Simulated scan of single mutants.
Amino acid sequence: MFGHQQKNVQPAVDERTQPWVEKYRPKTIDDVAAQEHTVSVLRKALSSTNLPHMLFYGPPGTGKTSTILALARQLFGPDNFKSRVLELNASDERGISIVREKVKNFARQTPRAQAVASDGKTYPCPPYKIIILDEADSMTQDAQGALRRIMETYARITRFCLVCNYVTRIIEPLASRCSKFRFKPLDMSSTSTRLAQIALSEQVQVTNEVISALVSTSAGDLRRSITYLQSASRLSSSTDPPAPITLRDIQEIAGVVPDEVMNNFASSLGADSIPSIFSKLEKQDFDTIRQQVKSIMREGYSAAQVLSQLHDLIVQHPVLTARQRSACALAFGDADHALCDGADEELWVLQVALRVNKAIS
């Protein structure tokens, strides 16, 4: 009846079923890619074990959450990580009640003395805890206001790390209490190198064309590109023998309209993607454009994706004048506003197509 209580032992994770995003998440801050300035500052803070309150901001998939988790593991070690680190996703738990109850209760607890990890390594284990608030820009104004006082009261034994995409949504009194770290979108070289390493480790055959497609479709979001690579790998291994991963596979997985479809669409508007120097952009008739729009929308592509790719074709067009591009940009802006308000997708793609055709002919 009064026997020894057994410790909760978590089952081992099968790496074969584990998402690659988690499997290849940085274990130390030195593994974080393409954020040299942030890593160098945190490395110095790690050596002194004197962390300030921190605010990590930047686009999704740039390593914000991975960086603070890796830093916390290096500070506390695997044995003390759970007792010293509280991670909350503020987009789910963003009300003032969560701040007053869960956050405040954890912040006020005095941490235990330094412990030695089971593998014999002693971690710095400074005399404070870390509370990580992911998606902090989703917190309500009242919750952020309540958090401000907690950060001041328990600063001696608790450090806060706010992680967000939009720093402007963090109230100024809260932001001023934190050291700000800006995470930049990953450059093509860093993303390509990381993807190639993962592909090699997982024994996935990929070409440079596929790597380039993963980089371009993810737009600097390494997490998204790794997810696309894993999905493509599963699609490839579903056949016997495994089929090679192609550019079209990546575009289908990413929901991107294939290049040939967009090029045909641009041609129907009179804007060939690679026009001849001697060719003249001609105005197309309404029925031709309407048929092209209907054909594309029946394939299930989103209007936002179609217009985004068409926008890139128009902006980078080698023949169009600045005035023509400006007229087209206005059409894209009107469509984006209308689609955000819930307008009909096909009608607005047709509207943009007709205005682009009129502007460039």
Rank of each mutant, 00 (worst) to 15 (best):
P26C: 05
T28V: 06
T28E: 09
D30E: 14
D30I: 02
A33F: 03
A34D: 15
T38N: 13
V39Q: 07
L42S: 07
L42E: 09
R43S: 12
R43H: 06
K44Y: 05
L46C: 08
L46W: 07
S47N: 15
S47C: 04
L51Q: 06
P52R: 10
H53E: 03
H53V: 02
L55Q: 00
F56L: 04
F56K: 00
Y57S: 14
Y57A: 02
P60L: 05
P60G: 06
T62G: 10
G63A: 09
K64L: 09
A70E: 04
L71T: 04
A72K: 00
R73Y: 03
Q74W: 00
F76V: 03
D79Y: 03
D79Q: 11
F81E: 09
F81Q: 11
K82T: 13
S83C: 05
R84E: 11
V85M: 00
V85S: 11
V85T: 08
E87I: 07
E87A: 01
L88K: 02
N89Y: 09
A90I: 06
S91G: 05
D92C: 03
D92L: 13
D92H: 06
G95W: 02
G95H: 08
I96P: 06
S97N: 14
S97W: 12
S97V: 13
R100D: 14
E101R: 03
K102L: 13
V103P: 04
R108T: 05
R108L: 03
P111A: 09
R112D: 07
R112A: 15
R112G: 12
A113W: 04
A113C: 09
A113I: 07
V116Y: 13
V116F: 12
S118I: 02
G120K: 11
G120F: 03
K121A: 07
Y123C: 07
Y123R: 08
P124T: 02
C125S: 15
C125P: 08
C125Q: 15
P126W: 06
P126Q: 09
P126L: 12
P127L: 05
Y128E: 04
Y128P: 01
Y128C: 01
K129G: 06
I130D: 04
I132M: 08
L133F: 03
D137Y: 08
D137T: 12
S138P: 10
M139Y: 04
D142H: 05
A143E: 05
A143V: 04
Q144M: 04
Q144T: 06
L147F: 07
L147Y: 02
R148P: 05
R149C: 02
I150S: 11
E152M: 13
T153W: 10
T153V: 15
Y154N: 03
A155W: 10
A155V: 14
I157Q: 11
T158V: 00
T158H: 00
